[in-house]
C-alpha cells in the first residue's frame, strides 16, 4: 500500500511535469491521461476504490476523450514553427518562482500543523458514499444536476458552428 502510494504519486508528478513542459498537444493529452490514472492508483492505495474507479471512468474515460476529440477535430500541430516564447528563461522564471513560493508556503503550513493522522487503508465502500449522497446531501446532488444541465446548454450554444459570412445577411426574414 505504501509502495503503491509513493510510486503512483511520483508517476503523477512526473507526468504533470511532462504535460506543462511539452509542446505537442497530443503528447500533452496522453501525459494528462497518465497523470490522472496515476492519481486513481493513489486513490486505490489510500483505500478509496470507489473514488479511484470514478476517476478512471469519468476523468480518464470521458473528459479526456473529449479533449482528444477536440485536438483531433482542430488538427492541432506542435508549436514548432517559431521560437517558443515560453522556453526563454525570462519568461518562465516568474511563474515558476510564484508557484514555487506557493508550494513552499503550503508545505510549511501542512508540516507545521502536526495533525499526526495516518491513513491505514481502511476501505470506504460505495454503499457509504451512496448513503451520504442520497441521504443528508440530496440537495447537493440536485444542485450538481442543475450545474450539468447549465453546462450542457452552454456548451451546445457556444460550440455551434458559425454561419458563413456571406449567408448571414441573405434571406433575412427577421
Amino acid at each position: 500500500m505504501e509502495l503503491g502510494f509513493y510510486l503512483s504519486g511520483l508517476v503523477a508528478v512526473l507526468a504533470t511535469v511532462g504535460l506543462i513542459s511539452g509542446s505537442s498537444p497530443v503528447h500533452a493529452v496522453v501525459y494528462l491521461i497518465v497523470s490522472l490514472i496515476a492519481v486513481a492508483l493513489v486513490f486505490f492505495a489510500l483505500g478509496a476504490p470507489f473514488a479511484g474507479a470514478l476517476e478512471i471512468i469519468v476523468y480518464a474515460g470521458a473528459i479526456m476523450v473529449l479533449f482528444v476529440f477536440v485536438v483531433m477535430m482542430l488538427n492541432l500541430r506542435p508549436e514548432a514553427k517559431r521560437d517558443p516564447l515560453w522556453l526563454r528563461p525570462g519568461y518562465w522564471l516568474g511563474p515558476s518562482l510564484l508557484a514555487l513560493v506557493l508550494l513552499v508556503a503550503l508545505v510549511a503550513l501542512i508540516s507545521d500543523g502536526q495533525a499526526g493522522m495516518t491513513i491505514d487503508g481502511e476501505l470506504i465502500t460505495a454503499r457509504d458514499i451512496g448513503l451520504t449522497l442520497f441521504g443528508p446531501w440530496l440537495i447537493v446532488v440536485e444542485l450538481a444536476a442543475i450545474l450539468l444541465l447549465a453546462a450542457l446548454v452552454t456548451a451546445s450554444h457556444v460550440g455551434r458552428r458559425n454561419k458563413p459570412r456571406g449567408n448571414r445577411n441573405r434571406g433575412g426574414t427577421r
Binding site: F5, I110, M117, I119, G121
Partner: peptide, 11 residues
C-alpha cells in the same frame, strides 16, 4: 504502518 496524512496532502 500506514501513510501519514501530510504526505497525501503534500502530493
Amino acid at each position: 504502518t500506514g501513510i501519514p496524512m501530510e504526505h497525501g496532502l503534500i502530493l
